[in-house]
């Protein structure tokens, strides 16, 4: 028996720390690429100059400082939020198909945006952000009020409530072409242009929720064994469940509000990591926070260069990348790995 990171039982036999290091290196590389690549390619030397020795008259420096860097940071935050949110909801529900939006977050935000647009309130990026957050929080609060007594009831309430919200929003959009137009741009899910808004609040919220997720991960280790065993291990199941739901709502809500629905990241990343983490929730959460941003940044970079005519929304690229990967995982390890 050897000593290892104190956050989880030592398993010198598995390669989790090595995976973390490789992941961090890959994240760094993806970050550099996402700052350098785009409609205007920035040489690596200029990239360094923009950070170390900023020249406001240098076009490359301006691109890096004002557009690329904020967008990269946004991509990291959104990727981490979605992947960690997915890890939390899949662990809590013991359901491999759960994604962070399942509790009503996505359709709540979509509904609020639709109603907002119909009432002429969704003009600016800031008001869109506000509407998204309000919709997510209200929808999750309602779902929680109905289903808080058991996780299964929560999921059912989330799915049912999402369906209702989706139906009503669809009705509004079909009768109002103007609303449909506004909604369309949000609904594809993209980082483009979103970096120009003041993102301090959502980014701080995501950062705080990520820390909270790491703290609660150890209690989720117990919850993952089922509620009966968790109770007899001395875990406060109701409290952990509530705290986890709040974290999922903040993570998915903030990410959806700033970038639209890109929830596929939350479905696929925890899957890719589940085998590698040999069932440890703290490691699953930690590695999700690294791999989620990698997927997000790679997808966003590809989104910028895929078409000459303009950008492909990143949500489309994540689905294109993630779908085949998911199929590969199932074929390689069998459906049991889900």
């Amino acid at each position: 028996m050897t000593s290892a990171p104190p956050a989880s039982p030592p398993t010198a036999r598995t390669a989790r720390p090595a995976i973390l290091v490789v992941g961090l290196l890959a994240l760094f590389a993806a970050g550099v690429a996402s700052v350098a690549v785009g409609a205007r390619a920035v040489p690596l030397g200029e990239l360094w100059g923009a950070l170390a020795d900023f020249d406001p008259l240098n076009g490359d420096h301006l691109v890096v400082r004002d557009i690329r860097l904020p967008r990269t940071l946004l991509g990291i935050a959104v990727g981490a939020a979605l992947a960690v949110g997915g890890a939390l909801i899949q662990t809590l529900s013991r359901n491999p198909l759960a994604e962070p939006g399942i509790l009503g977050v996505t359709h709540g935000a979509g509904f609020a945006l639709t109603v907002g647009a119909a009432l002429g309130l969704a003009g600016s990026a800031v008001s869109q952000l506000g509407l998204g957050v309000a919709g997510s929080v209200l929808a999750t609060a309602l779902v929680y009020a109905v289903g808080r007594h058991s996780t299964l009831r929560l999921l059912l309430a989330g799915v049912a409530f999402s369906a209702v919200l989706m139906g009503v929003s669809l009705g509004i959009r079909l009768t109002s072409p103007d609303t449909l137009d506004k909604y369309r741009f949000w609904a594809v899910g993209s980082l483009a242009g979103r970096e120009q808004t003041d993102l301090t609040v959502p980014l701080v919220a995501i950062g705080a929720a990520l820390v909270g997720a790491l703290v609660i991960a150890r209690s989720l280790n117990a919850i993952a064994l089922g509620e009966t065993v968790a109770h007899t291990l001395g875990a406060n199941v109701a409290r952990v469940r509530t705290a986890t739901l709040v974290l999922i709502t903040v993570l998915a809500g903030a990410a959806t509000a700033v970038a639209g629905p890109i929830l596929f990241v939350g479905l696929i990343v925890p899957h890719l990591l589940r085998r590698l983490t040999s069932g440890s929730v703290p490691w699953l959460v930690g590695l999700s926070a690294v791999v989620g941003p990698i997927l997000m940044l790679v997808a966003d970079t590809i989104a910028r260069v895929l078409l000459h005519t303009g950008e492909v929304p990143v949500a489309i690229v994540t689905a294109f990348l993630g779908g085949p990967v998911l199929i590969w995982v199932v074929r390689r390890y069998g459906a049991g790995s889900l």
Binding site: A222, L225, R274
Partner: peptide, 18 residues
């Protein structure tokens, strides 16, 4: 009892220390 997906024996036994 139902073991979570992907968990190893050592991991599962470790949960008893909660």
């Amino acid at each position: 009892p139902l073991a979570p997906e992907g968990i190893t024996v050592h991991q599962l036994v470790s949960r008893g220390r909660y």
